[in-house]
Design a protein around this nucleic acid. Structure first.
Length: 607
DNA sequence: GTAGGGTTAG
């Protein structure tokens, strides 16, 4: 394949007066290569190039000069600098792999992976042989574009060249596979390494953490320690994010001690990851005290705290943090605002949220992303302004993603608006009909409105389309062991364990205190009231909370993590458990925290 | 020129 020139090549500055652009009056012609190192803009580079041609101080076959110019262009790539680099490269009579690597790096940095890959194919067919610098940038490009097929081809080629065991190539191969969602392929690469170094371990641990497989990440971390491989701060970042995923406060605290003992707390990133971990493991107090001890706080550190308060439903404190951040002249970024918008959304502060959105755009010149739009839809929808939310999506200048509609669908469910939910579901199914959660929400709404034929019909549609429902799962850490419970465990008699009997007893006590099971979300029309009650009783979060109450000393806070939104009945039950059994219950749901104490929840029943 | 903190989806 011939490499075609891109159409947007900046014109050479032939018309300009050719003098040494940086030092106009020098008598001795300076070496253009030295000029490049002082160059500050693309324009200057083009002048230097023209000067070099005109003054004959370089031979156009001289690779080192061209390569230096290409390097300058790809350092912080822009559309025009990349076009220029490409032009320089294409004009080389005998392009070499060094300049090629530089171009490829530029494309992958400017997130233009497709061009990068096409260029690579052309070069290979031109007979050039890639070296171990070639692979990392191309693999990065595949990772960014989720180009699994291209990534695999590169992997094969690197094997043919005997480079797949290279210290630079391995970690990028692992990273490419995990970013393309093939973690097992990544693991196969990792397992082929005879003696993996820290970087390869880190790549694999990060991959597991990113793909929501924290247990495997942690087991590799233990393996590293067993081999007395030197753990670095990057290892800790991924290990901490694994703790956050699991909600494992015990392990997180251990990592905190480990980090302190081994001198990792001097890294701002480690502190930020620790704050995030404490907040996501339910201990906002630990997050705050660590944050206050930090001497240097950057934008991510402030954002972590703003997000932490938002997730715990403390909107006022989120907003206060923002004020403090501003008074210390720290610049907010897009994530800071995501935090603020979520904070407002969880408290129903529609006007405040709108104000932050407009400040973000007008005052801080941040271009809203799809996630900001999502937060706005949530803000409006959750507050019951469903029509506003619908109009907001409909009038966006970008085409809405299924996720945006999904957020609105969830609000329809909270506010029991079946008509709008049907309309919104249609929009979703046009784009993606494989998401089990959408059917569940709609089906629950039909059930709540006693439309049993619709429930049945939807169930059939769901089955035909092979959409899968994610089972509810809750976990709790007791004595450093994480226990997992699934919804429905115990409904059949053969899985009815001691825990289920204990839960039955607890429910009896709760009923004395006024608990009335809310079975309105149970979708089976043909169930008796008793069967419905049992279906609700063995929800995963109730099992986990019961396990916590039974297996920890009286008065201990019970911390539970759930993979989906908490159901209304479990929310009611948890409030009563906090009174009847005198326990604080901290429940992390898929989108926020609920703190139950003295019969009340921190969300104020708005969630 | 390899791994990388704060968001990730109701």
């Amino acid at each position: 394949m011939a490499i075609s020139s891109p159409s947007l090549i900046p014109s050479f500055p032939h018309r300009e007066t050719i003098t040494n652009p940086l030092k106009p009056d020098t008598l001795n012609p300076p070496n253009p290569i030295l000029l490049i190192s002082k160059c500050t803009s693309l324009r200057e580079l083009m002048q230097i190039h023209a000067y070099a041609i005109k003054s004959h101080v370089y031979n156009h076959k001289d690779h080192s000069f061209i390569t230096k110019m290409i390097n300058f262009c790809t350092e912080s790539p822009t559309t025009s600098s990349m076009s220029y680099a490409r032009h320089l490269f294409d004009a080389m009579p005998e392009p070499d792999i060094v300049s090629f690597n530089s171009i490829a790096r530029g494309y992958s940095r400017s997130l233009n992976p497709i061009v990068s890959f096409a260029l690579f194919v052309g070069v290979l067919e031109g007979g050039m042989s890639p070296d171990h610098y070639t692979f990392p940038s191309l693999l990065k490009a595949c990772a960014a574009a989720k180009g699994l097929e291209e990534g695999r081809q590169l992997h094969c080629l690197s094997m043919k060249l005997g480079l797949d065991g290279d210290v630079f190539v391995c970690p990028t191969l692992i990273n490419m596979y995990t970013e393309c969602e093939d973690v097992d392929a990544a693991r196969r690469v990792f397992d082929r390494i005879i003696e993996p170094c820290v970087v390869s371990y880190n790549a694999m641990i990060t991959g597991y953490a990113r793909r929501n497989r924290p247990n495997e990440a942690l087991s590799l971390f233990r393996e590293m320690q067993g081999k007395s491989l030197k753990v670095n701060e990057i290892t800790l970042l991924s290990v901490l994010s694994s703790c956050s995923l699991l909600g494992s406060l015990g392990l997180g605290k251990w990592i905190h001690e480990y980090a302190t003992k081994h001198g990792f707390c001097k890294y701002v990133k480690v502190n930020t990851a620790l704050i995030d971990m404490f907040a996501k493991c339910g201990s906002l107090d630990d997050a705050v005290s660590l944050f206050e001890k930090m001497r240097h706080k950057d934008t991510p550190a402030w954002s972590a705290m703003i997000v932490a308060y938002a997730n715990h439903g403390e909107a006022e404190k989120s907003m206060l943090m923002f004020e403090r951040m501003r008074s210390e002249s720290v610049q907010p970024d897009e994530i800071t605002f995501l935090g603020l918008l979520n904070a407002c959304s969880h408290r129903g502060l529609v006007e405040e949220g709108r104000k932050y959105f407009s400040r973000m755009v007008n005052e801080f010149k941040i271009v809203p992303s799809i996630k900001h739009y999502g937060s706005m839809v949530d803000l409006l929808g959750r507050a019951g302004r469903l029509d506003d939310a619908y109009r907001f999506i409909d009038t966006l200048h970008i085409s809405p993603t299924p996720m945006l509609w999904r957020i609105l669908l969830s609000s329809c469910s909270s506010h029991n608006d079946l008509k709008l939910a049907e309309k919104v579901s249609e929009r979703i199914f046009e784009m993606d009909d494989s998401h089990g959660g959408d059917y569940v929400i709609l089906s629950n709404l039909y059930a709540r409105n006693k439309k049993w034929e619709d429930v049945d019909f939807l169930r059939k549609v769901m089955k035909d389309r092979r959409a899968v429902k994610i089972p509810g799962c809750s976990s709790i850490e007791v004595k450093n062991v994480v226990h997992e419970f699934f919804s429905g465990d115990g409904v059949k008699s053969n899985t009815h364990t001691k825990l289920h009997i204990a839960l039955d007893e607890m429910v009896k006590e709760l009923k004395v205190a006024g608990y009335v099971p809310d079975t309105s979300m149970v979708v089976h029309a043909d169930m008796s009231d008793h069967e419905k009650e049992i279906a609700v009783r063995y929800h995963s979060e109730k099992l986990a909370i019961a396990f916590g109450v039974l297996n920890t000393p009286p008065g201990t806070t019970v911390r539970v993590v759930k993979n989906l939104r908490v159901c209304r009945d479990c929310h009611n039950a948890a409030k009563l458990i906090s009174v009847v059994f005198g326990r604080r219950v901290v429940l992390r749901d898929v989108q926020r925290f609920h703190h139950f104490e003295d019969g009340k929840c921190s969300c104020g029943d708005f969630w």
